[in-house]
Structure formats: structure tokens, C-alpha cells
């Protein structure tokens, strides 16, 4: 059975989607515990990918392709987990603030978070404070992430945080922000819990905040 796990991990690392699907099917047919397939096969492979990315040896598209390979296995395993909890790092609501239509950076963060095991609810672009609030109420995320590329729209982040305070929800969710004009200083000024300068750091920031 150990063979399945190391081979699954290796194929997640090398992003062999078909091979991961095949191995997962065979492992399940052999009676391997679905939770073990995730925890001892797929996730450890993805952890290696994360470490290599951090060292600069793997690139963003490779990380995302590995995540896609991992998900090919996950899709087969998930339906069998009735009554058991699907392992997740946490839930994140993401969006680009009102008046701002830039979304490649935010989508990249979304993909990187998903690849690291988070459940992401992506609200898209031009998201109003009211819409952020509604999403927090409905999904009860661990983390709310906001993105802005323009110095004129970044102030909208403060409005969202103020609204969360008014509704008494501010202490139930961690708020993280990012985008080209954003700095740690600005995050502190508007009362966000964290700032990440790029997509790789965003994942690490979420790990830290969720662990607290």
C-alpha cells in the first residue's frame, strides 16, 4: 500500500493528471482508505511542490498543474467520504474591490490557495462592500481577501472593514489584502490582519493566520 502513496505523491509533483487518476482508482479498488489516499498520497506530494516553489525550483504554472493533478485524485475520493470530513486548510472569500476590474492577480491567489488545500469562494471583480459582507455572512470564511490594482480603488478596502465592524463580524474573520499599490503600512492603517506582496506569499500568510 505504501507504494501507492509514494507513487501518487511523485505523480502529483510531476503533474501527471491521468496517472494520478489511474493510481487513485487502483488504490480504491484495492481497498485503501480514501482519507489515507488524501493524507498520505496526494497532500504530501503537494507539500513537496510547495517547498520547491518556495526555493524557486518550481514555477507558478507548475504548481497549478500539480494542483490540477492532485484534484484529479480528489474528485474520485471525495464522494466516498460520506460522513467524514474532507480535509481542507480553511475557507477563503476573495474579490477585487468596487470600481476595480483587474482580476488576474486575484485569480492567481485563488488558484494558489486552492492548490494549497483551501476552499475558495471567488466573488470576481468590482465587488461592493455590501456584497463582501453578504458573502462573509453566508459562507462564514476563515479569511476574507481583497485585491486592488488602483490607488483610487484601494480605499474601498477600508469601507469593507468598517462595514464588518458595524455588523459585529470583524472578529470572526481575518482580513488580508494585496495588489500592486498595497503595502504593509496601508494594511495596518486600515486595520487589515495581513498583507502579501505576491501570490506565493499570500498562501503563506493564510497558513499563518489560520494557524493562530
Amino acid at each position: 500500500m505504501g507504494n501507492y502513496f509514494s507513487e501518487l505523491g511523485e505523480n502529483v509533483i510531476s503533474a501527471k493528471q491521468e496517472r494520478v487518476r489511474e493510481l487513485t482508482q487502483r488504490a480504491l479498488a484495492d481497498g485503501v482508505d480514501p482519507v489515507e489516499i488524501i493524507n498520505s498520497g496526494l497532500i504530501p506530494g503537494m507539500n513537496v511542490v510547495g517547498a520547491r516553489f518556495k526555493a524557486g525550483d518550481m514555477f507558478v504554472p507548475e504548481v497549478l498543474m500539480s494542483a490540477r493533478a492532485m484534484n484529479a485524485g480528489m474528485e474520485l475520493v471525495k464522494p466516498l467520504l460520506v460522513g467524514k470530513e474532507v480535509p481542507s486548510q480553511g475557507k477563503v472569500v476573495l474579490g477585487t474591490v468596487k470600481g476595480d476590474l483587474h482580476d488576474i492577480g486575484k485569480n492567481l491567489v485563488s488558484m494558489m490557495l486552492e492548490s494549497a488545500g483551501y476552499t475558495v469562494i471567488n466573488l470576481g471583480v468590482d465587488v461592493s462592500a455590501a456584497k463582501f459582507l453578504q458573502a462573509v455572512k453566508e459562507n462564514k470564511p476563515d479569511i476574507l481577501g481583497m485585491s486592488a490594482l488602483l490607488t483610487t480603488t484601494m480605499l474601498g478596502m477600508k469601507d469593507v472593514i468598517e462595514l464588518l465592524k458595524e455588523e459585529g463580524l470583524r472578529d470572526q474573520v481575518k482580513v488580508v489584502i494585496g495588489g500592486a499599490p498595497i503595502s504593509q503600512e496601508f494594511a495596518r492603517e486600515i486595520g487589515a490582519d495581513g498583507f502579501a506582496p505576491d501570490a506565493g506569499s499570500a498562501t503563506e500568510l493564510c497558513h499563518q493566520l489560520v494557524a493562530r
Binding site: A15, F59, V60, P61, E62, L64, M65, I104, N107, L108
Partner: peptide, 14 residues
């Protein structure tokens, strides 16, 4: 859409 996870990106990026 985006090209980040397209196979071609993966193939050429290095």
C-alpha cells in the same frame, strides 16, 4: 480567461 494553467504555458515557460 487566463493562460496560467494552460498546457502550452507549462510547456514553454522554462
Amino acid at each position: 480567461g487566463n493562460y496560467i494553467v494552460d498546457d502550452q504555458t507549462y510547456q514553454y515557460m522554462r
